Amino acid sequence: MSRIVLVTGGGSGLGKAVAARFRAAGDTVVVTGRNAGRLARTAGELDVRPIPCDATDPGQVARLADELGPDLDVVVNTAGGNTDLGVDQGPGLEGVLAAWRANLDANLLSAVLTTTAVLGKLRPGGTIVTVGSIGAEYASTSYGAAKAALAAWTAGLSSEVGPKGLTANLISPGYIAETEFFRGKLTEQRRDALVAATHNGRAGQPRDIAETTYFLASEGARHITGQTLHVNGGAHTTR
């Protein structure tokens, strides 16, 4: 049976790969993002429905929820990124505050707002998947803190939605090649170090995250909920 799938940040990178995976299976896919032009190009390429939306803006998120229609089966929160790699927020404590707020907005609050807005649309058997980061395990930065908060929020969300027949999980990627995450600031030496930290000696690919997401939304994963799944080639291991 065809499902209705919402992918935030679906215009490029991991979100685009996730949208492509669900669409290839015959699901109806809606992609959102701030860049309307890029979103439209992705929609044409993948045969998905674009709805421009800044997931950090409550008004735009509310409009997104209205446009989606009454039913939904899968929510995938991939919108985000390390805003520290973008515009310099300025000096002093004001700059620190702005930098932290930017990453919390982009990574944590975008997922919270979107999920809250559409939660009532999810049908029993539905799934919420949110993309975190290996940075949550190591980073003392605002980005790492925001991604760590996502994991805690997901665990709590699972207990809230479980009685409704829904699951909620977080995927924590390591280094993923072929994305714009580093915004051109990844040196060859840093890339080599990230690959060397894995056990299988390779960089992750967007399809690794897409396939894991698709599995978590499958019937075979109905008893997996409230979890953080590390998809990083062993760069971070759990016991």
Rank of each mutant, 00 (worst) to 15 (best):
A62K: 10
L72G: 04
E67S: 12
N77H: 07
V76I: 10
P70I: 10
R63P: 09
L68K: 05
L72P: 08
L72E: 05
G59D: 14
R63G: 15
A62D: 06
A55I: 11
I51K: 12
P50S: 15
N77V: 13
V74F: 13
L68V: 06
D57N: 13
V75C: 07
G59Y: 07
A55S: 14
A62H: 08
D66T: 12
C53Y: 08
I51E: 14
L72F: 12
P70D: 02
V76H: 02
P58M: 02
A65R: 07
V75W: 08
G69V: 00
D73G: 04
P50H: 14
V48C: 13
P58F: 07
A62N: 06
P50N: 10
R63Q: 13
P70N: 07
D66E: 15
A65N: 05
A62I: 01
L64P: 02
V48A: 09
P50M: 13
D71L: 08
R63D: 14
V75L: 10
L64E: 10
L72Y: 04
G59W: 04
A62G: 00
P70R: 11
D73V: 00
D66Q: 11
E67G: 03
P70V: 01
T56H: 04
V61Y: 01
C53M: 09
D71W: 10
A55W: 07
R63K: 10
V74M: 09
V76Y: 04
D54P: 03
G59N: 08
Q60T: 09
G59S: 15
L72R: 05
A62C: 03
V74P: 06
L64R: 07
R49M: 12
R49G: 09
I51Q: 13
D73P: 00
N77W: 10
Q60K: 04
C53W: 03
P58S: 06
P50F: 14
L64G: 06
D73F: 11
V74K: 03
L72M: 03
P52R: 05
V61R: 02
V61Q: 04
A62R: 04
T56V: 12
A65L: 03
P70M: 06
Q60E: 15
I51F: 12
L68G: 02
L72Q: 05
N77D: 02
D73L: 07
C53L: 13
P52H: 09
A62V: 03
V75N: 04
G69H: 02
R63H: 14
P58H: 08
G69A: 10
P52W: 12
L68P: 03
Q60G: 13
G59L: 10
V74C: 02
D57H: 08
P52S: 08
R63I: 08
V75E: 03
D57T: 07
V61W: 01
V75P: 00
D73W: 07
D73K: 03
P58I: 12
V48Y: 06
P52D: 04
P50W: 14
P58N: 04
D54N: 13
N77S: 05
G59A: 15
P58D: 12
A62S: 12
V61A: 00
L64K: 06
D71Y: 15
P58W: 06
E67L: 13
E67V: 02
D57G: 05
L68A: 06
P52Y: 11
A62P: 00
I51L: 15
V61D: 00
P52Q: 11
V61S: 02
D57Q: 12
D73Q: 03
G59P: 12
A55Q: 13
